[in-house]
C-alpha cells in the first residue's frame, strides 16, 4: 500500500512539467526514504534524477518498496487537472496496475480522483558516484534559462567556461558568435539574485543547447540553479524542490571526434 499526501501539490505539477518533454516513460521508485525517479532521455545522452524525501510529505505511507511505471506525458495531463494550491495524494495498492491521484482544494470543497494505468518499463539504473567538481556555479535560474534560450537562437551548442573572472557561455552559428559572461555577485540583500562561483581549477566544456533548454523547464521550481562541472564528465544542473529534495539533470559533454 502506497499513500503519499503532498500539501504543496503545485510542486508535483511543476516537477512533471520539467520532466515530460525530456523523458517519455519512467519508473517512480517509492521507498521508506522517499519518492524518486531516475531516467534517461530517448537518445541516452541526458539523465534525470528526482528525489522527494518522505519528510516533505504531510503523510507518507509506503509499506514496501514499489516501482510505478508511468508515462510522464499522461501523468502530466492528469496533474494539470489539479489547481496549483490543491493538496495532491498519490495512492497505489501493491498488486494494482493503476495509480490514483487525488486532488483536494485547500478548503476541502472539491475533491477529485484520477486513476491512471501503470506500465511495465524496463529501464537501466545507472550508478551515479558522488563527485568532486572542478567548478560549481550557483546563479539565478531565470538568468540561466534566458541565456540558454538566447544562445540557442544563434547556435546549437554552448561552451561553458569557468575561470576566476566568472562563468562564460559561448556559442557560434552560421550568423555569428555570442559570448555572455556572468561575474560573481554575492547579492547579500537578495540571495536569490546571487551568482556564486566555487572554482578549484578552470574548466571549459561543450554541451548541446537543446538539452540545456529542456532542463530549464524546471525554472519555476527554484530561484537558483546549480551547475557543476568537471573536465570530461557530465554537467549536473540542479534545481531544489522546496525543502524536500531536488531534480538533477546530467548531460554528457560533446567531445572532439
Amino acid at each position: 500500500m502506497l499513500e503519499l499526501r503532498l500539501v504543496q501539490g503545485g510542486l508535483l505539477k511543476k516537477v512533471l512539467e520539467s520532466l515530460k518533454d525530456l523523458v517519455n516513460d519512467a519508473n517512480f521508485d517509492c521507498s521508506a526514504s522517499g519518492f524518486s525517479l531516475q531516467a534517461m532521455d530517448s537518445s541516452h545522452v541526458a539523465l534525470v534524477a528526482l528525489l522527494l524525501r518522505s519528510e516533505g510529505f504531510e503523510h507518507y505511507r509506503c509499506d514496501r518498496n514499489l516501482s510505478l511505471g508511468m508515462n510522464l506525458n499522461n501523468m502530466a495531463k492528469m496533474l494539470k487537472c489539479a489547481a496549483n494550491d490543491d493538496i495532491v495524494t498519490i495512492k497505489a495498492d501493491d498488486a494494482s496496475d493503476s495509480v490514483t491521484f487525488m486532488f483536494e482544494s485547500p478548503n476541502q470543497d472539491k475533491i477529485a480522483d484520477f486513476e491512471m494505468k501503470l506500465m511495465d518499463i524496463d529501464s537501466e539504473h545507472l550508478g551515479i558516484p558522488e563527485a568532486e567538481f572542478q567548478a560549481i556555479v550557483r546563479m539565478p535560474s531565470a538568468e540561466f534559462a534566458r541565456i540558454c534560450k538566447d544562445l540557442s537562437t544563434i547556435g546549437d551548442t554552448v561552451v561553458i567556461s569557468v575561470t576566476k573572472e566568472g562563468v562564460k557561455f559561448s556559442t557560434r552559428g552560421d550568423i555569428g558568435t555570442a559570448n555572455i559572461v556572468c561575474r560573481q555577485n554575492p547579492s547579500i540583500d537578495k540571495p536569490e539574485e546571487a551568482t556564486i562561483i566555487e572554482m578549484e581549477e578552470p574548466v571549459s566544456l561543450t554541451f548541446a543547447l537543446r538539452y540545456m533548454n529542456s532542463f530549464t523547464k524546471a525554472t519555476p521550481l527554484a530561484n537558483q540553479v546549480t551547475i557543476s562541472l568537471s573536465a570530461d564528465l557530465p554537467v549536473v544542473v540542479e534545481y531544489r524542490v522546496a525543502e524536500m529534495g531536488y531534480i538533477r539533470f546530467y548531460l554528457a559533454p560533446k567531445i572532439e571526434e
Binding site: 534517461m40 537518445s43 541516452h44 545522452v45 541526458a46 539523465l47 537501466e124 545507472l126 550508478g127 551515479i128 558516484p129 551548442t157 561543450t206 548541446a208 564528465l233 557530465p234 546530467y250 548531460l251 554528457a252 559533454p253 560533446k254 567531445i255 572532439e256 571526434e257
Partner: peptide
C-alpha cells in the same frame, strides 16, 4: 566536429 557522448558511458560501471 564534436560528437555527443552517451550518458551511460560515464555511470554504467560506477
Amino acid at each position: 566536429l564534436k560528437s555527443q557522448t552517451r550518458i551511460a558511458r560515464f555511470y554504467r560501471f560506477s
